[in-house]
Simulated scan of single mutants.
Amino acid sequence: MTAREYIETIAQELSSVRGRGLLLSPADAQLALSWHAREVPLAAVIAQVRKAARLRARSTARGAAEMMLSLQALAPALDRLGARRRPAPREPEGLCAQLRAAARCPGLAARAAWESLADRAEQLLAEDGGDGYWTLAVRALKAALRELPRSAALEAGSALRSRIAPRPQGMTRRSYQRSLQLMLLSASSERLGLPPRAFLL
């Protein structure tokens, strides 16, 4: 339904209950236009108009002064209805979308690197046990630290040193190096918010 049809239908209903012409006041017309934009159901507006008309008729029958029926008087009830109908934001679907959403956090250093990682995450995790993902995550972290004051890199290094343990017997140097990289990512995320926690999977 077009905005014009929406407004004209409301005007016709108001006219029938008020016994006056079809024209809405500028304020009422603007209000109706805003309801159309917010997708407030036309049926709900009509129902509120008729409800207000019934209440006005009862008040008049009891000898009270006749109330002016306008859309502005209906606004609070319809605003509450619009608020109830407003859908909750949808959670991003899929790992790529979730990481993309995380990469939009304000002030994120090396944002382009994190976005690139988000776009390739699912493919990288499906190959070689996910090693490619963590390699690019460490690379993105290094790029981010280069954009931050040197004190940030020192803080991340300090957090990593507090977690380092000697290489266990039987663990290859490559596996040990990877574990250190994962610890660096985790420590930096806790201390600096880099990477955003979603990237730690």
Rank of each mutant, 00 (worst) to 15 (best):
T2D: 12
T9M: 03
T9G: 00
I10D: 01
G19V: 03
L24D: 12
S25A: 14
Q30S: 15
Q30G: 15
A32M: 05
S34R: 15
S34M: 10
A37G: 06
A43Q: 09
A43D: 12
A44C: 03
A44P: 06
A47L: 07
A52Q: 15
A53R: 06
R54P: 01
R56H: 08
A57E: 15
A57G: 05
G63R: 05
A65L: 09
M67F: 00
M67D: 12
M68W: 00
M68Y: 01
S70F: 00
Q72A: 12
L74E: 06
A77F: 07
A77V: 11
D79C: 04
P89F: 04
P89L: 09
P92F: 12
E93K: 11
C96H: 08
A97K: 06
L99V: 10
A103E: 07
R104T: 14
C105R: 15
A109W: 04
A109G: 06
R111K: 11
L117M: 02
R120K: 13
A121G: 07
Q123F: 12
Q123K: 11
G129A: 09
G130I: 03
D131N: 08
G132W: 04
A137P: 02
V138D: 10
A143P: 04
E147H: 08
R150F: 00
A152C: 14
E155I: 06
E155Q: 13
E155A: 14
A156Y: 05
A156W: 03
L160N: 02
R161E: 15
I164R: 07
A165T: 13
A165L: 10
P166H: 11
R167A: 11
P168W: 03
P168E: 06
Q169L: 13
G170A: 07
M171G: 04
M171N: 03
R174L: 13
S175K: 11
S175Q: 13
Q181A: 15
L182Y: 10
L184Q: 13
L192Y: 03
P196W: 01
L201C: 10
L201E: 11
